[in-house]
């Protein structure tokens, strides 16, 4: 009799456990993104300036600015084309330097992309083989980062093209 009760209790409690495990699992977002991996420091890297091909260290970029915005782009990436007008809008209304990182691109193609759509960037760096983007923790193009330029920590990440709302958010974050 006692044995039966214990069995019943065990079966019931395991059923309840399984039910709640699956129930909680239902509500959990299983779409993985690195968007929440923020406040991480970007380690120093070296790259080449897009037009002059001069070697530049990330730590020496815009030394007088408290924040910088880093945008990873490429001429072959369609969403980048879509986002470009928002980058230009962002650059017009903000005192923060906008740094472009040209991802796995051909120089000629990238140059004609900029002459066609305008160049919002203060500095453009090259990422020929995509290793700098991995150093930053990026998936690909386009991605935009608001970075504290004093300690080089990421404040906010935008995966994919930025929209007008993101532009407003970046503007208000970079004012603080």
């Amino acid at each position: 009799m006692v044995n039966k009760k214990i069995k019943l209790f065990l079966i019931l409690s395991s059923l309840i456990f399984i039910f709640f495990t699956f129930y909680l699992g239902l509500n959990k977002n299983n779409y993985y993104t690195t968007e929440n991996i923020v406040y991480k420091k970007i380690e120093n890297f070296e790259s080449y300036e897009f037009f002059s091909n001069k070697k530049i260290s990330f730590k020496n970029i815009s030394p007088d600015k408290k924040y910088i915005i880093l945008n990873i782009w490429s001429s072959w990436c369609l969403p980048c084309r879509k986002e470009h007008k928002n980058l230009i809008k962002l650059r017009e209304n903000i005192k923060v330097d906008l740094i472009g990182l040209n991802y796995k691109d051909k120089f000629e193609n990238a140059k004609s992309f900029l002459s066609e759509l305008g160049n919002p960037y203060d500095i453009i760096l090259k990422d020929k083989n995509g290793l700098i983007s991995i150093e930053i923790g990026a998936y690909g193009v386009p991605e935009t980062y608001l970075i504290n330029n004093i300690n080089k920590k990421i404040i906010k990440k935008y995966l994919g093209p930025i929209n007008e709302e993101n532009v407003k958010e970046i503007q208000s974050l970079a004012k603080q």
């Binding site: 991802y103 796995k104 083989n129 995509g130 290793l131 991995i134």
Partner: peptide
């Protein structure tokens, strides 16, 4: 064969 995976492979080699 995505750009991301190709870059990660380059990184592993490095």
């Amino acid at each position: 064969q995505s750009e991301f995976a190709l870059s990660i492979r380059d990184l592993i080699i490095k």
